[in-house]
Design a protein around this nucleic acid. Sequence first.
DNA 1: CGGACAATTGATCTACCTCAAAATTGGTGG
DNA 2: CCACCAATTTTGAGGTAGATCAATTGTCCG
Lengths: 248, 248
Amino acid sequence: MNPASDPPSLLFVRKLEVLTRFAAAEREGLINLPIVVRTIEAGRDIVREGEFSKQSVLILDGWLCRYKVLPSGARQVLSVHVPGDVPDLMSLHLRLMDHSIMAMTEVKVGFMSHESLDILCSEFPRIATALWKETLIDASIFREWMVGLGRRSATQRVGHFMCEIYLRLQVVGLAKDHKCAIPMTQSDMADAFGLSLVHLNRTLKELKEAGLISLRHQTLAILNWHGLVKACDFDPAYLHFSPQIREG
Amino acid sequence: MNPASDPPSLLFVRKLEVLTRFAAAEREGLINLPIVVRTIEAGRDIVREGEFSKQSVLILDGWLCRYKVLPSGARQVLSVHVPGDVPDLMSLHLRLMDHSIMAMTEVKVGFMSHESLDILCSEFPRIATALWKETLIDASIFREWMVGLGRRSATQRVGHFMCEIYLRLQVVGLAKDHKCAIPMTQSDMADAFGLSLVHLNRTLKELKEAGLISLRHQTLAILNWHGLVKACDFDPAYLHFSPQIREG
DNA sequence: CGGACAATTGATCTACCTCAAAATTGGTGG
DNA sequence: CCACCAATTTTGAGGTAGATCAATTGTCCG
């Protein structure tokens, strides 16, 4: 879906065009954005809390997550990111990182300098607005996760995530027929849902035994979409997809 | 601190100037922003999840919170807002509200139409950037709350909030000498920290008995700032104050 | 002074945690 | 192709932070 001849920025343009219709010049400006492509091995940090960031990363392939670690050693995964996402877009204006970003799998990323993004934004204000919107959707997802962490049961939290990630992957063509890859360890998931590893494992087992999902070899199948949506109280409104996309 | 003769927009300008140094024209544009002032009684919703928003509210006096309610009836408070905040700034670009906003006290708010904000942003790109930054800090606070909800104990969550709100109030001149008003019921706090009302009450008691805080008649005093900061693992970096502000 | 709401306390229960070990999986080198 | 290692997943057993249910007390106001 992304031939070698395509510039890496094309994925970025496509993602933004889900929300914004660009003029030809804007599109061109985006496509010509200088991007430095690099491959990073699984487990490596891309940026660390406390660092000053001078660039943002576009994910071209693989998954990555944002997290914070407490003095106790406990880790909270704040978000999970898939191809097309720019997880640290916020650093464009908040240069001091308040969290870290780690490769969950081997990832291919494109580095976009803040300098060139700034220039692009001032030349094309509608691009600035499109990027701003991306950061707002990011925040909306945080809010929904907060609801899960504060008020949903372990089972609902896990199921809710499965629904969310399936839809997000579907938008970028990486999921269909209620199946997708989830290249996370159970330890990663536990840290994302605020659970212990042991309890996460039991929660997954419960969802499997209820016939709602199957998950093996990092491959998720949602066996009963409507059942899962209902059980976990999933409503995709918070993803702010344009009207024509919303469904399961 | 805000004489009757001052236009309500002045509070907004002051808040934004914490992060951005404006040119005279920009400042003037902001001050002339048309604002409709209204008073709203405690407990009333200002916007509801699912509505389309055509304006954003600037808090002039009083507190308000954002929240979501689950089908079970459980409520999660997502954030708490004080004078100077524009809690639904996100609706400027995500018009469909994914959460509700409620007055926690009687509040005096200023309504700013999205139309006039849009015009201001396109005329003064640096104002757009300043607003974007505000939404990014908002998201940063969500991230920190996620860490609390997922990985901190009840005691730490409560204490952490006390530190945060004290500093945020201090910036707008509403707190000093480690004292400030916290016009929230314990029920509101419980919903903000993902706790039951009963447990929240016991947690407060614990912090009081440890000599870290006092809280009576909605008045908070932090009796041992350093002790509290240490016990709750509080680090204000996530508030992204400019360097000269950071301290307790 | 009464009524409504908010705060506090008691008693019991449970969802999820921690500690510990075993089983499974995937990758590597011989 | 197999043996082995390290990482991951799974299961068992027992403990606890925080939930729920149920009063009681305090506070604010009209």
